[in-house]
Nucleic acid binder design. Structure first.
Lengths: 100, 100
DNA sequence: AAAAGCGCTATAGTTTGTCAAGTGCCAACC
DNA sequence: GGTTGGCACTTGACAAACTATAGCGCTTTT
């Protein structure tokens, strides 16, 4: 539990997982999808997530560089957490667009 | 969603809420319960949580100082999130003691 | 031929969190 | 009755985390 919180409170981690729920992505694409994470932090997070087997990294070609990141099963299981956060946020956080 | 993640990824926030799920606590007591958060950060977080109405602060006496922090309804609702994280952690994170 | 994009890495700079000490007062202890 | 320790914090110097920007070698697009 402590370890899980520790992991999830690292900046961008949850955003990364949420973005990857929409399907595999390349490095820069992912950076944009999460809302502008800088490459240094992004790589740090992805390495960490790969190490913990939440994410898999697949190199399609070295030159030109082409890589994709995808959620592993453990990562997909975080969807429950993300949905819980989403639900809570909608209910309790002031929304920018109350209706549309 | 973005705002919710933003909030929950601040260091100690989830630990604080989890600790308060066990009941109201004083400032220093809470600091110990979350595992050693420093008072500066702790106050910052509590102020933020109070502002967002996740936590209520009650002053019982000014001198000697006696204050307690408790979860407001919006804070209690985070229990779903915390349980989701807990469940995920147990299933997917290497545990220090696999059985007891 | 020039420009833009890929997946990164390096470096410097800003933000965020930490440690230690200290405040003013009271309760308990010796 | 004087000392110690605890309460809820605050302050200020420091370290760790994160950010912005530039650049690499190469291909694709214009």
């Amino acid at each position: 539990m402590h370890a899980a919180i520790q992991l999830l409170q690292e900046k961008w981690t949850l955003h990364i997982v949420r973005a990857l729920l929409d399907g595999p992505m390349g490095f820069n694409e992912l950076g944009r999808a999460v809302g502008g994470c800088n490459p240094a932090t992004l790589k740090l997070r992805l390495d960490h997530l790969e190490e913990l087997a939440l994410v898999t990294r697949t190199v399609h070609s070295y030159m030109p560089p082409r890589t994709s990141y995808a959620l592993a099963p453990a990562g997909v299981d975080l969807q429950r957490v993300i949905m819980a956060i989403d639900g809570w946020g909608r209910e309790h956080l002031p929304s920018a667009r109350p209706h549309g």
